[in-house]
Design a protein around this nucleic acid. Sequence first.
RNA 1: GAGCCCGUAGCUCAGUGGACAGAGUACUUGGUUCCGGACCAAGAGGUCACGGGUUCAAAUCCCGUCGGGCUCGCCA
Length: 581
Amino acid sequence: MFIAFREEVESVLADALRAREYPTDDLGIERPPEGVDAVLASSVAYRLAGEAGAPPPQVADELADAVDLSDATYVGGVTQQGAYVNFTPGEAYFEGALDTGPDAGRLAPTGDSVVVEHTSANPTGPVHVGRARNPVIGDAVANLLAYAGNDVERHYYVNDAGRQMALFTWAYERFDESDLPEPERDRIEYDLVRYYRTGNEFLDGETDGATPEAIEAAEAEIDDILQGLEAGDEATHERVSEVVDGVLAGMKACLARLPAAFDEFVKETRFMRDGSTDDVVARLQELDEAVYEADAWQLDLPSFEKNLVFLRSDGTSLYTTRDLAHHEWKFDNYDRAVTVLGEDHKLQAGQLREALDLLGNDADQLQTVIYSYVNLPEGKMSTRAGTGIDLDDLLDEAIDRAREEVETRLDDRTRDELDDDDIERIAKQVGIGAVRYDIVAKQPTKAITFEWERALDFEAQSAPYVQYVHARCCGILDEADEVSDGATAAALTEPEERDLLRSIARFPGVIDEAATELEPHRVATFTREFAETFNAFYRECPVLSAEDPAVREARIALVAAARHTVANALDVLGVAAPESM
RNA sequence: GAGCCCGUAGCUCAGUGGACAGAGUACUUGGUUCCGGACCAAGAGGUCACGGGUUCAAAUCCCGUCGGGCUCGCCA
């Protein structure tokens, strides 16, 4: 409803400006502050005052008079208030909101295919919370783009050709179970990461037998593995794959708990084996910006101080070289590409974009969402050093605390009994939902220092507050009759009812803006405001016990519309919408 | 040192040219014969880091300063 309303406002206001021979390049359309009756307003009168030779309020008044609403469906009125032209909703706007169904917030298809790449953590060990923002934000961005009408695919780009993986493969083959500490958890990536850590310690000369000669021999073996990968050697690829696929399977299981699922795990070796990395190297060498210095091929990018090396002196490619081939593949197969990256990759992303441009691609097809790292009070988290909080541990703790919460509230319940399965389901929905919501509700550019109490705070503006509204809606609808087709917004005259209808109507507009800006936290802000609006309605307006049958029918329809809105808003955020809690 | 990001109520955060800067939390006080109290109402809490500038209008844009984060590898 909101989007149609906005289009009508743009159209009638532009017409009015044209009729008065004013410019129409900036309509100044904005959301009015709380307490103003309008859905949208225009501040264009400020800018026209000079040209019109009249004070802004007078210009606004003139424009309000000039607006012709005879063809408008959703805009019901236009008024002047101070320097503003305010557009108020008509009855069709409220009726449309009341009709909101299971497709709440879904926008018309754009016809665009979009690949969203996120997480893409190196398969070296368990997922830790330092990078937990990536799957949470990435999944929400993908959901958001899908709601906005795009055909979305979710990719995890697997770094299986880098030096780290060669090192890991060597360590896996070199060390024995008996050389390793006990795994922290019974899952494959916790088992395997012990080889990676022990291998790194060995190379740093921190383990027995790590003589300079032994380290040198190990380095030579790691180089051999890298060379084998570069040459497309099948046996080498299989050796590395065993480690990569093992660790990845475990990481996948961890991410599935969020849940964050992927359509495809795209391995970078794919772009070495199909020859596209070689092709990129050959084309880069032809560029005017290509230089051969210190036996290595480099790119002298105009916007960057440091050269970008794209071919090592030993002839092997680098991460960014392969990523160029990867992105050209994306451009060939999708209309748009969105990547969610930690801020530590920002420079690399900029260089990638410029190199793609030099290679003749339209780099505007690529957008990046940057988030800041989550650090511990004592410093960075590192898989290699084994410092960090595992995402599994955070989720376990969140579920435990949620379970306690549910159990202490059991006695207060006035509704149906919960069995053990219900308690477990609710504990997961609330615990994991709270963790996700806490991450996705914040602007990603702000740095976070991880603290247990803060990450597990279920009070405050958190998921359970919003989830509770959904459960309440379900509770009411459970006891209500079928939602009637005959329900009409005309029966909803209380201000709290009208406010709720406006909130429901606004949801598609929130999706539209959040998707355009790639900012899922806007949806989280909406859920909070929506929950408040719903609770005000709930407080003032009895539904099932409403005396007038027409009002009762309309309120039931309103609760149904609210339920679909909050369910889908949570769905975008990747937070479960419990039917009871 | 250079480049990028961040700085809003005690704390955690929205707001990023336009109507009086908003929530939650913590603190004080009150609310359930009635659909789910994981709720609601009221009070108190601000040099929007600091200093200049642009504009009819700046938390928002520009310049500088301070404080914090990230990056600057033939790693990823």
